[in-house]
Simulated scan of single mutants.
Amino acid sequence: MEPDVTTPAPPQRARRHDPGRRDRIVDACLDVIAEHGVAGTSHRRVATAADVPLGSMTYHFAGMDELLHEAFGRFARDAAAQFERRMVEARTPEDAVQAVTTLITHDVFATQRDLVLSHELYTLAARDPAYRTLTNDWMRRSRDALGRHFSAATCRVLDAFIEGMTIHRALDTEPHDDVDVLGAVRRLTGVTPPGVP
């Protein structure tokens, strides 16, 4: 009678516990877009940037469009939140004028990454109404934040000015003077410097 020799089963690999994986993929997607544009963003590039298996992409997202929409949604919400924080901190009309000036001169498009991501989102929104909901929500939140200090009509004009001026400042090759921005914000809002009647 032959001895009963049982071959031990190979040890099972422990599943990697990675609760932040989905968020990491979204953040990595924004990094890839900033470097390669939407056209150059692929599941493989995002997976590599996030340091996750390629299969994780289809596990967490139905397709590239879902991932792009979530990534741009996060970017737009973060940008709107920064805008809101700046305006909430303003206590007087003068504070609000200074806050808007700082948004233009320092906050919006503070980095090349922000500039590229914003323009990639604008391009998608121009073609696809699904992305326009993201930009419309971003604009609504910006106007609501401005509305703490200014009339609805002023908010619409001021929001458009902030958008246009930040783009010009980001892309212009000439130096900029922050005093010019402050003067324009004063003219649009009608808020005069302290001590000026």
Rank of each mutant, 00 (worst) to 15 (best):
V97F: 11
E89M: 11
S56V: 08
P11K: 03
A28V: 03
M64V: 09
L68V: 11
H106L: 02
H69C: 05
V181S: 06
W138A: 02
A110G: 15
T192A: 15
T41G: 02
Q82D: 04
Q82L: 12
D128Y: 13
F61E: 00
D51S: 11
A39E: 03
G190F: 10
A47H: 02
V52P: 08
T154E: 05
T135R: 11
S118L: 12
P10T: 02
L68D: 01
R77W: 02
G63F: 07
M1D: 03
D137C: 06
R141M: 08
H43D: 00
G195M: 15
R74I: 03
V157K: 07
A170N: 07
D159I: 12
D78Q: 09
G195C: 13
D178Y: 02
G37R: 00
G40T: 01
N136Y: 13
E94G: 15
V46S: 02
Q98Y: 11
Y122K: 10
F75L: 05
D137Y: 04
L146S: 08
D137L: 13
Q112C: 14
H69W: 14
D114Y: 12
T92Q: 07
T189G: 12
V32G: 00
D23V: 13
T154Q: 10
E120V: 12
D107M: 05
E174D: 10
T7D: 01
Y59F: 14
E163R: 15
L103S: 06
A160T: 13
A76T: 05
W138R: 11
H60V: 02
R85M: 07
V97C: 06
P19A: 00
I162S: 06
L115M: 06
T92S: 11
T58K: 11
V52R: 05
S42T: 15
L30S: 07
A110Y: 12
H176F: 11
R186N: 02
A39W: 02
F61N: 03
D31F: 07
